[in-house]
Design a protein around this nucleic acid. Structure first.
Length: 577
RNA sequence: GCACCCGUAGCUCAGCUGGAUAGAGCAUCGGACUACGAAUCCGAGGGUCGGAGGUUCGAAUCCUCCCGGGUGCGCCA
């Protein structure tokens, strides 16, 4: 049996055509969950206007064309208020639908009809710079979207567009040369890279002679000087190891093979600039090669350029981003190009997309989307800048989260072995950090708050993990008694849980479309609270045999849905904690 | 100056793309453990949805204008 929601939708669409004519066949019946019934249909009100008939009459006319007795309880179809159609499903319909879910490894998440090749840009941490909390958002968001899209049947190609090229490397390389000449060990230990960068930065800002050498070094780097490249490569290698360690600790699926930094596109930039100029898309302006996409203006209302090639012949990130976009479509075969990049880049990305459009690199079905997200703010509500301020290091943040989780697990469940406790602490701590970030609307600024991250109550990762662990506790107690049988939904708490379980597919699909993982978080939280209420109201193991078997199946479905949902968020679901 | 984003309970946030009395969690107050795990559950109080207009049966949601906060706006990436 198909999903009840799909059945209802199909019935109403057909009824619309029968009642009002074939042109209404594809009218959205506006089927929604309701707090007054299981579902409500709101199409009568919107249609009343077009048909110039009272909405309640429209609703009645619709219902006259429908036989829902196999789906809804007797008296479970009513017209209320201005024309709401309230629907209450039969318990056996819910029971049967849940049995279907039980047999479905995808738990009701449909496969995409026309799969995309999704290329996901995870923002761009800079080589040779410490990763900080700002990188948390793009990594976690990108990883979650990758998991959700893959689960829906799309092909996902991750791209770690690291900043591994350009002017900062002049100063980094010169500083490395200095340090080695002074006979000190060249500290390229991944964990020390942040300090190294800061030291080079200070020297660059205070020592003019050093700054000159750094600039010369940039020219050598871009000219392909072998010795310079060798030094540069040391930074890249060290940084890659560092990033891999951070991603590993975070449980983010980015690997070395996904790294395709700015340097990769360097060789293609000249050709790209020439082509844009030859096609008349880019023009020389004050010595720089620029594209002026329509609709962008600067301070004096003058056209705003995307600079492809600077006056001095160098290339900026405009050129690199264009080359990368083209590469993702032409070489990687991407059809949906996602940029998980901070909101501060909004205008820049919009311009890159506009130029790519002009160049014909974004023809349907290829499209590009900016998965924008807000800044990370401190207690003072000000943006955490990366330049000179004391940032919280990502690694230290994760360590502390795990530590706090460890203390909590020790207190709540002293029976665990130290081995398991360490493993669980990692799952809970990292999960708490991720969930705190993912559960908020990404477009808004994120207030970084320790207490909130490690608070294990309310809409948090640990609460969801706890709900999952409790279910497994029942399984352990049940032992072999958990025979098959069928699900029979009867009690109110069972009905509420059933309706939640049936909504998983919708929640996942919504994230696929909106690219907003907090909707999945909201869904899972609702599921966990529904389960907790059920858990409180409906005894499982103490129930009579038939009921027990049914409720055990409800537990199984709940546990699987929670675990699958958490996994889509990149969060583990331990069986005890 | 122009463009984009944000403004919802004391705090942190939801609100399904226009639906019914705006919902959670912290915090406050009151209940429920001889336990299928109380990291839980049940209940109470708390709101002119920044403000003012407009669109219509109906607006936190869409349009316009203000107020407040943030971010961008030509050769750093």
């Amino acid at each position: 049996m198909p999903h009840p929601e799909l059945l209802l939708r199909a019935r109403f669409e057909a009824a619309l055509a029968r009642a009002f004519g074939a042109e209404y066949q594809h009218t959205d019946p506006l089927l929604r969950r309701s707090d007054r019934a299981d579902f409500q249909v709101n199409v009568a009100m919107s249609l009343g206007k077009a048909l110039r008939r009272p909405p309640r009459e429209v609703a009645q006319a619709l219902l006259a064309e429908l036989d829902l007795s196999d789906l809804c309880v007797e008296g479970g179809i009513e017209v209320a208020g201005p024309g709401f159609i309230n629907l209450t499903l039969r318990n056996d319909v819910l029971s049967e639908a849940l049995s279907e879910l039980l047999a479905d490894t995808a738990l009701g998440v449909p496969k995409a009809v026309t799969p995309d090749v999704c290329v996901i840009d995870y923002g761009s941490p800079n080589i040779a710079k410490e990763m900080h909390v700002g990188h948390l958002r793009s990594s976690i968001l990108g990883d979650t979207l990758a998991r959700v899209l893959a689960f829906r049947g799309h092909r996902v190609v991750a791209q770690n567009h690291v900043g591994d090229w350009g002017t900062p490397f002049g100063m980094l390389i010169e500083h490395l040369v200095d340090v080695r000449q002074e006979g000190r060990a060249a500290d390229l230990d991944p964990s020390e890279l942040g300090d190294f960068y800061r030291a080079a930065r200070v020297k660059f800002d205070t020592d003019p002679g050093f700054a000159d050498r750094a600039r010369t070094r940039v020219v050598q780097l871009q000219a392909g000087d072998a010795a310079t490249l060798a030094l540069w490569q040391q930074f890249v290698n060290s940084s890659k190891r560092y990033m891999a360690a951070v991603f590993e600790r975070l449980g983010v699926g980015l690997v070395d093979a996904d790294v395709r930094g700015e340097s990769f596109f360097n060789a293609k930039l000249g050709e790209l600039a020439d082509e844009l100029q030859a096609r008349g898309i880019a023009v020389l302006d004050d010595g720089a090669l620029c594209v002026f996409p329509p609709g962008f203006s600067g301070r004096e209302a003058e056209p705003l350029p995307l600079i492809v090639r600077k006056k001095d012949g160098g290339f900026g990130y405009g050129a690199t981003d264009l080359a990368a976009l083209r590469f993702r479509h032409e070489v990687l075969g991407g059809t949906r190009l996602l940029y998980v990049v901070g909101a501060t880049q909004q205008q820049h990305l919009a311009m890159v997309f506009a130029v790519a459009n002009m160049a014909g690199w974004l023809e349907p079905p290829v499209r590009a989307e900016h998965v924008s997200f807000g800044s990370v703010l401190g207690d003072d509500r000000k943006m955490l800048k990366s330049r000179s301020g004391e940032n919280i290091r990502l690694i230290e943040l994760l360590d502390e989260a795990v530590e706090r989780a460890h203390a909590a697990v020790l207190e709540k469940n002293p029976d665990l072995s130290e081995d398991e406790r360490r493993r669980v602490a990692r799952q809970v701590g990292i999960g708490a950090v991720k969930y705190a970030d993912l559960s908020c609307d990404r477009i808004k600024d994120y207030v970084f708050d320790w207490r909130r991250m490690v608070a294990f109550e309310g809409n948090t990762g640990p609460y969801l993990q706890y709900a999952h662990a409790r279910i497994h506790s029942i399984f352990r107690k049940a032992g072999d008694q958990q025979a098959g049988g069928a699900i029979r939904v009867l009690a109110p708490a069972e009905r509420a849980l059933a309706l939640e379980l049936l909504a998983f597919g919708r929640a996942v699909s919504e994230v696929e479309v909106t690219l907003e993982p907090h909707k999945l978080c909201g869904y899972l939280y609702g599921l966990a609270t529904s389960f907790s209420s059920f858990f409180e109201a409906c005894p499982v193991l103490k129930a009579p045999p038939e009921e027990r078997a049914s409720r055990l199946l409800l537990c199984e479905l709940s546990a699987r849905t929670l675990r699958t949902g958490l996994n889509l968020l990149g969060i583990d679901a331990p069986e005890r904690m």
